[in-house]
């Protein structure tokens, strides 16, 4: 189309233009990097790279001490599935614990939220009281409750003569299990309560008034109007409790230390011991990858299920 003579000057101009556009683009990329870069860098180095390393190490015989890291293929995984009953026991314990504590802490949290949603005079004070355990870390809470179960319960038992308080709570498998559930629920239900209260306050009051005029009972109001309206809060609370209960470590280690006879050993403790006490890093990472898969599956299935119900409702 164009002859050489004609394009002489414009070509230079467009070159300058593309150069300046390139410069502008480069500047854009640089500012993007300056803003996003630090967060991305820390995130990649601290989480993503170790995660990928973990996948690799789970196929090796790495023991943390010797510099030789041998590729062993699926050996670690086979070992876990074939002869590691302790790991499976810890998975079963953790799953049972999760189910029990998710149900109890949400029932309690929702109940407390309904209670404080009434026009109580002591409402603000009670909200503070129920929330307090949540600001203390699991480790210290575990120690506190160790004292309560061992000495406090015995004292209450002497005062009231109730047999529940005279049991050797942390010394028996069943009661130790429920002991952890109780402390977890005590810690977490105030948190759930706060989320449920926020959701309850968003419920349209005129809707409830209208239903009341139509003669609906409180129970129908609750199950047919309130709960369907605040299903998103249930999704969040279940997600939070499931993932917190499944990853339990601090509270578990300070309250029972996994005992008696490893009966209350959570998966997180099992992995920790495999790696940092038995020095079997390869095996530990293989376990931790399986743990990741289970947590990911549990939480996504749960979110998908409750989300689906939200839409239907």
């Amino acid at each position: 189309m164009e002859t050489k003579i004609e394009i002489g000057e414009p070509a230079v101009k467009s070159e300058v233009k593309t150069l300046s556009r390139k410069k502008a683009n480069l500047k854009k990329i640089l500012t993007y990097g300056a803003f996003v870069g630090p967060a991305l860098l820390f995130f990649l180095v601290i989480q993503i790279i170790p995660f990928l390393m973990g996948i690799y190490y789970s196929f090796t015989s790495w023991n943390g001490v010797s510099s030789v890291v041998e590729w062993v293929g699926l050996e670690n995984y086979i070992k876990i599935f074939k002869n590691d009953p302790k790991f499976f026991d810890s998975f079963i314990f953790t799953t049972k614990f999760m189910l029990a504590s998710v149900i109890i802490s949400n029932l309690l949290g929702f109940g407390l939220a309904l209670l404080l949603n009434a026009a109580l005079k002591s409402r603000n004070l009670l909200r503070t009281v129920f929330f307090i355990p949540n600001v203390i870390g699991g480790l210290l809470l575990g120690f506190i409750w160790q004292f309560i179960f061992v000495k406090g319960f015995a004292a209450i038992g002497n005062l009231t003569d109730l047999s529940v308080f005279k049991l050797p709570w942390l010394g028996d498998e069943t009661t130790a299990f429920w002991g952890i559930v109780i402390v977890f629920a005590w810690q977490i239900s105030g948190y759930m309560m706060v989320i449920y209260i926020a959701a309850l306050q968003g419920v349209d009051q005129t809707l409830l008034e209208a239903a009341k005029i139509d003669g609906a009972s409180s129970w129908t109001l609750l199950t047919k109007i309130i709960i369907p309206l605040i299903l998103p809060a249930f999704t969040i609370c279940f997600f939070l409790t499931i993932s917190m209960a499944f990853k339990i470590f601090d509270l578990n280690i300070s309250l029972t230390g996994g005992g008696p006879f490893n009966s209350t050993q959570s998966v997180a403790i099992n992995i920790y011991q495999e790696a940092f006490q038995n020095n079997r890093y390869g095996l530990g990472t293989a376990k931790s990858i399986l743990f990741f898969l289970v947590v990911a599956i549990f939480t996504t299935v749960q979110v998908m299920m409750t989300k689906k119900r939200e839409v239907e409702a």
Binding site: F43, F51, F249, Y272, G284
Partner: peptide, 19 residues
Amino acid sequence: FVSAMVIPFQTVMIPLMKL
């Protein structure tokens, strides 16, 4: 960023100590 929130700390901790 968001999907990394599903990764449990225990899955990252062992290699992280090496790194």
